[in-house]
Amino acid sequence: MAVPSPVAPPRLRMMSPLDLDEHPTRAVRDHVVALAGLVLFCAVVLLMGR
């Protein structure tokens, strides 16, 4: 029986699918950061309008 040849090219990370389920989600922190960005944007718009 033939053994597989080890001369195959290495598997690149960009060619493998992303495992998005492995990364934990931080829903509360993401919402707080989004809300803070929205408030900051509104404050900048109000200050630029004066």
Rank of each mutant, 00 (worst) to 15 (best):
C42L: 15
S5F: 02
M14T: 10
R29M: 11
V39H: 07
F41S: 08
L35R: 07
A27H: 08
P17C: 06
P9C: 06
V45R: 06
L18W: 04
L35T: 12
D19H: 07
H31M: 15
V32I: 14
S5R: 08
A2C: 12
T25E: 09
G37I: 00
V28Q: 07
R11G: 05
M48R: 12
L46K: 05
T25C: 05
P24R: 08
L38V: 10
L40G: 11
L18R: 06
V7C: 14
H23D: 15
E22N: 09
G37Q: 02
A34C: 03
A8V: 12
V44M: 11
A43T: 00
A36K: 01
F41C: 13
L20T: 09
V39F: 09
M14W: 09
V33L: 15
P6W: 02
A43Y: 02
S5M: 01
R26S: 13
R11M: 10
L38M: 12
H31Y: 13
H23E: 15
V39C: 12
R50H: 11
L18E: 04
T25H: 03
L46I: 12
P4R: 01
P10E: 10
H31D: 15
G49F: 06
V39T: 13
D19R: 02
H23C: 09
V3R: 08
A34R: 08
F41L: 15
R13H: 10
V39Q: 05
M15P: 00
F41K: 05
M1P: 03
V3Q: 10
A8G: 14
V28H: 03
L35K: 04
A8P: 00
P9F: 00
V44H: 05
P10K: 06
R50F: 09
P6L: 09
P9G: 02
L20E: 09
L40W: 03
F41N: 04
A8S: 13
L12M: 14
D21L: 03
R26G: 09
A27R: 15
L38C: 12
V44A: 13
P6F: 01
P17M: 11
P4W: 02
P4Y: 00
R26I: 11
M14C: 13
T25G: 03
A36R: 08
L35H: 03
D21R: 08
A27P: 03
V7T: 14
G49V: 11
V39I: 15
A8E: 13
L35Y: 07
L12Y: 00
C42N: 08
M1H: 14
R50P: 03
V45P: 05
E22W: 08
R29L: 13
V33G: 05
R50I: 10
G49P: 01
V44S: 02
P9N: 01
H23L: 15
A2L: 11
V7E: 14
M48K: 12
A8N: 13
A43H: 02
A27M: 10
P24T: 01
P6G: 06
L12H: 05
C42A: 11
V45K: 02
V3Y: 07
C42W: 09
V44Y: 04
D19Q: 08
L12I: 03
D30F: 01
L38W: 11
A43L: 08
H31W: 14
A34E: 08
L46Q: 07
P10N: 07
E22M: 08
D30M: 04
L38P: 01
